[in-house]
Design a binder for these strands. Sequence first.
DNA 1: GTGCCCGTTCAGAGGGTCCTCAGAGGTTGT
DNA 2: ACAACCTCTGAGGACCCTCTGAACGGGCAC
Lengths: 246, 246
Amino acid sequence: MNTTRSGRPALTRPDGTPLRVLVVDDDPDLAEVLSGALRYEGWQIRTAGDGASAVAAARELLPDAVVLDVMLPDTDGFAVLRALHTVKADVCVLFLTARDAVEDRIKGITAGGDDYVTKPFSLEEVVARLRGLLRRAGMARQLDEGPRLTVGDLVMDEEAREVTRGGELIELSPTEFELLRFLMRNPRRVLSKAQILDRVWSYDFGGRAHVVELYISYLRRKVDAGREPMIHTVRGAGYVLKPVAS
Amino acid sequence: MNTTRSGRPALTRPDGTPLRVLVVDDDPDLAEVLSGALRYEGWQIRTAGDGASAVAAARELLPDAVVLDVMLPDTDGFAVLRALHTVKADVCVLFLTARDAVEDRIKGITAGGDDYVTKPFSLEEVVARLRGLLRRAGMARQLDEGPRLTVGDLVMDEEAREVTRGGELIELSPTEFELLRFLMRNPRRVLSKAQILDRVWSYDFGGRAHVVELYISYLRRKVDAGREPMIHTVRGAGYVLKPVAS
DNA sequence: GTGCCCGTTCAGAGGGTCCTCAGAGGTTGT
DNA sequence: ACAACCTCTGAGGACCCTCTGAACGGGCAC
């Protein structure tokens, strides 16, 4: 079976081959970071820097999904979208956009099931949105992984944004939710504060690792409150989420 | 079974294959947004930009329904309509028309079972009308989904435009009705304000997400008034409709 | 045991999101 | 023409979320 670099089973195409994703952004650094994160999911990645080469690359790769910066040097996002759909009608598109551009340029995009994230985004968010898109589009094989994440008696429904432990509902703020999602997608693995920062906080976040500690403490208060703890500190290394009967 | 990209069961042809719809509009952006929304319903879509290519496409696709702009660069919509009927006699047609234009002729045409929406329209409206047309024409297989939507004790009769909760009638304005319909067609799923805006408001609406908040508050006043709330805010993410006993 | 460092938690500032009200402007129906 | 209704804008304010700084405490090395 196809697996991620992290050892988790990968989300794959229905036939078991890796999902194919095209990343289109004119900032090479950002494209690099993005494709790194997506490769980590076990997917096959290609990048392009403008609309024309994006369409050319799509014709070769026939991607299942495209991560597409709305602001490209040559064409506007809408034209690229149209071109992509003629290449492969059922392709999913995740747009990257500046915060203020949301209102005009993206208008109507999400109605087709496509989605967008605003810059600056966190990698965790991009990956989650992409996974959501691919799953809903039926591109991905749903094996053990459904739309809900489970670690012990802790359950997260990503679509409803609902978390329960032992059946009891837990209310989380957006950042708490993303942090917990990252932990739950990497159970039994020690995650360093640097990893967590890179993944859960936006890429332009200048702050310190101290925030991670703070949010871990918030999470503990809500997730572990009065129960057998699932979130453990590994001194000098990071944090790890484990089911209770480990 | 054929399903929509959202995971809901799709409205299909009687034999279970996807419904085939042809979109005819000379504005490529609008055609793109429309076909995106219809593809999201799990249907097979083709587009054309003028009357001649529309007829050609219809000959190939043999569509169950056609979404047809009345104002086309080459021919007028009615000539196209006649041509379409010679290609496939039982085709359903949904006209797109400007507000003041040709009321009489449209009304004459729609007596035959076809329907129309005036520009600017919302995608939710187009999709709903199309679903209604196809259902009435017997093109579509009526699976579990009838003309009535149910979430908990909240019931919507789309055809009668009637909403009740716990048997009690709720009066809604047109926009409130469409917003609630969209929520009810996506229960237990968090919908972002952008998604709602794209889907429920007309495509040329320049306004802000603030309107969504406003209309949610209207809906709450009517739907949740004095009862266990079904409409929930998910801070930083959007809104979600859930039956009370979740 | 002692000292240092890592991690935890508290308190609070600042900013942002969301809710509601009031009213203008437009449309519909009488 | 008038009334009723619907839709949207703008402003005010409440509340929540995020992050900073500082104090506290427990583990680990020596």
